[in-house]
Computed example of a mutant assay.
Amino acid sequence: MSAGGVVMWALAGLCVLFWTLVIERFWYVRRVFPQWGRERRKAWQHLLQDDRGTWRRAVRAAWLAQARQQLLGPLRLSKTLVAMYPLLGLLGTVSGMVAVFDVLAINGAGNPRGMAAGVWQATLPTLAGMVLAITGLFSLARLERDARRALERLADQLRHE
């Protein structure tokens, strides 16, 4: 961590935050949302038994919009974090290159070890940012797919009969 500079600590903190959010979303989609959906299906059955319910379509649309917001809304923060990873990696690259130029300004080109440390400091956060972004993209794609499937299942179960 110290070889990558301060940017590596920022990436580590964002990584912990991101994976906490992802685990929470996986838990929500698999454990909490199905219970919410069962409650809506029971209420839907009661609405279907009521002849006078010409407003059923509006209730269904409102429930589906609420479900969409519950499933997909919290993913916006995770998407923002994934977009920040490469940018922070680039910041690490710039700060590492500044360290290389600092060594060059003080010692000239005669200190290859000092320059190598700066290059290492420049490449490590970039690599870390890209790895985090790639794994984040894959996990978000899986989360979105699962959320959309749960939403489609609920929409199918709340059909007009």
Rank of each mutant, 00 (worst) to 15 (best):
I23E: 09
P86L: 03
R142T: 11
G129D: 02
W36E: 12
Y85G: 06
Y85K: 09
F33P: 06
S2G: 05
T126W: 03
T126V: 04
G108Q: 07
V119F: 06
L90S: 03
A128S: 12
R149E: 08
R52Q: 13
A155Y: 00
G114F: 02
A128D: 00
V7P: 04
A122F: 04
W19V: 01
R76Q: 12
W120K: 09
W44N: 04
A147N: 03
L104Q: 09
P112D: 04
L77M: 13
G5S: 07
I134G: 06
A3Q: 10
A109K: 05
W27M: 12
K79E: 15
F18L: 15
R145K: 13
G13Q: 01
M115K: 09
W36M: 11
M84S: 14
L21E: 06
S95K: 11
W120N: 14
E144W: 02
H46T: 13
A105D: 11
T54E: 10
L151M: 04
W9N: 06
M97G: 08
Q69E: 11
L87T: 09
G4W: 01
G4F: 01
Q35S: 14
F33A: 09
L140R: 07
E152Y: 05
G5K: 08
A43T: 10
W44K: 05
N111S: 14
W19N: 06
N111W: 03
H46R: 15
G136W: 04
G118N: 10
G136D: 03
R145W: 12
L91S: 11
L81F: 08
L17Y: 08
C15Y: 00
L154Q: 08
L87P: 02
A58C: 00
A105H: 12
A3N: 05
R57W: 01
A105W: 02
W120D: 12
R113W: 01
E152G: 05
A133I: 00
W19Y: 14
V98W: 01
Y28V: 12
G110A: 15
A141G: 15
L132C: 11
